[in-house]
Design a binder for these strands. Sequence first.
DNA 1: CTCAGTGTTCAGTG
DNA 2: TCACTGAACACTGA
Length: 265
Amino acid sequence: MPELAEVETVRRAVETGFRGKRIVTVICRQDPIVFDELGPRAFTGRLRGQTLIGTGRKGKFFWLTFDGGWSVLMHLGMTGWIEQGRFGQMDLRFARMQLEFEDETWLAFTDPRRLGRIRLRTDPLGEPPVSKLGFDVYLDDPGRDWFAAEVQKRKAPIKAILLDQGFTAGIGNWLADEILFQARIDPRRRGDTLTRTEARAIYRAMKRIVNRAVKLGADDTKFPNTWLFHHRWGKNAEARTSTGDPIEHCTVGGRTTAWVPTVQV
DNA sequence: CTCAGTGTTCAGTG
DNA sequence: TCACTGAACACTGA
């Protein structure tokens, strides 16, 4: 479930597990979609022998920076993930790229559905696509009043606004639903119908939920039982929250949306 | 066999 | 030009 908190957790795992290590082998699947027009060969040539000196993230993008000046920029799409292990123990079925390090450990980008992307950049934060992202609520604090004013300028449903990566980078489908549930706002409400108080409540819920999810290492089994998260999946008509309120499903902003009519107005 | 799905992009519309 | 919507992309697993 790679949204902001999951991606941050993956980035940290790579940072602690691989920083300072040198790549000995780069293995890339021939795949012009996951890679770009440069193709996998560009990666192999530029990364072999390089040492990982740092990592970064904004929204759902994260990157690994090497001492030769190149960064590998990744987006996990819907089903992408990072796996790590030691030589001799790997299931390669969905691996698109594997980096093998001199201490006989490896790191792999896996993605069954191929909606993930891997790119090479020299300045990942300053170049598209990352430069086009809006604020990241874990890294930036533009302020609740600025947030409220921006929301009130827009006519789209508030859920679609939260999913707009050019506005709130890193918010995905489950986070958007959780934020609106906890802020008690109907996901279909247009931005320009929200009061300043309501918009501020959304901002507060967004910060609280993202901070908590990151602190828990995005381990959803540790999310509080009061969160909608645990009860929202499967679109079944019997679904209820921890307080017994019925959960409805509809489509907002082109995405399946779970919400609670007795709580959200 | 059919279809939903935690992602982004882009063509089309008003 | 801007804001917004919905289809396309691609594939697995229920």
